[in-house]
């Protein structure tokens, strides 16, 4: 947990410094009335302050409280693969079309997760995709036709 806390604090400090750097370029206060940059600077300072408090608290942390954060086990790697797959799905979705990409995405994930026979995975995926397509497309009037296929 110690390492994770340092990373969290570091990322937030960098984030806050970026906010301050951008906000300094905004129009200044006018007759004591704050401009658009003032509140972001206040909040960013608060973030830096809390991050420093977190670092100090972590340095004082007892070894017994230092639980390990699992980021490399097989189970977690499965999550990374899932995330990557979804990013690919997100990139293909608007260009290829909802029904095609979603069915393929579902078949692959369900097959991987549940190890059921292919025909069952395909059937479940097609039925679910069509149900969502008609629920959103026809009942809720969300435009669901995009991409060069459907």
């Amino acid at each position: 947990m110690r390492k994770a806390n340092f990373i969290v604090a570091g990322v937030f400090i960098a984030f806050a410094i970026a906010i301050i750097a951008i906000s300094l370029g905004y129009p200044p206060s006018n007759h004591g009335v704050p401009g658009p940059g003032m509140f972001p600077i206040i909040i960013a300072s608060l973030i830096i302050f809390s991050a420093v408090v977190l670092i100090i608290a972590t340095l004082k942390m007892k070894e017994s409280q230092n639980t390990k954060v699992d980021l490399t086990s097989k189970n977690v790697v499965n999550v990374y693969i899932t995330m990557a797959g979804l990013v690919v799905y997100f990139l293909l979705l608007p260009n290829v079309g909802f029904i095609t990409t979603t069915t393929i995405m579902l078949v692959l994930y369900i097959k991987w997760f549940s190890k059921r026979p292919w025909w069952k995975c395909i059937l479940i995926s097609i039925l679910f995709t069509l149900a969502i397509f008609f629920l959103f497309g026809s009942v809720l009037n969300v435009p669901m036709r995009y991409g060069f296929l459907i």
Partner: peptide, 26 residues
């Protein structure tokens, strides 16, 4: 500290877009 950091992240996200008082894009 983590609660404040996370709340601060939320507030910071809310800054995005046109400023409601001056109309300045942030």
């Amino acid at each position: 500290a983590k609660g404040v950091l996370c709340g601060g992240l939320g507030i910071a996200l809310s800054f995005m877009g046109i400023d409601s008082i001056t109309g300045y894009p942030r």
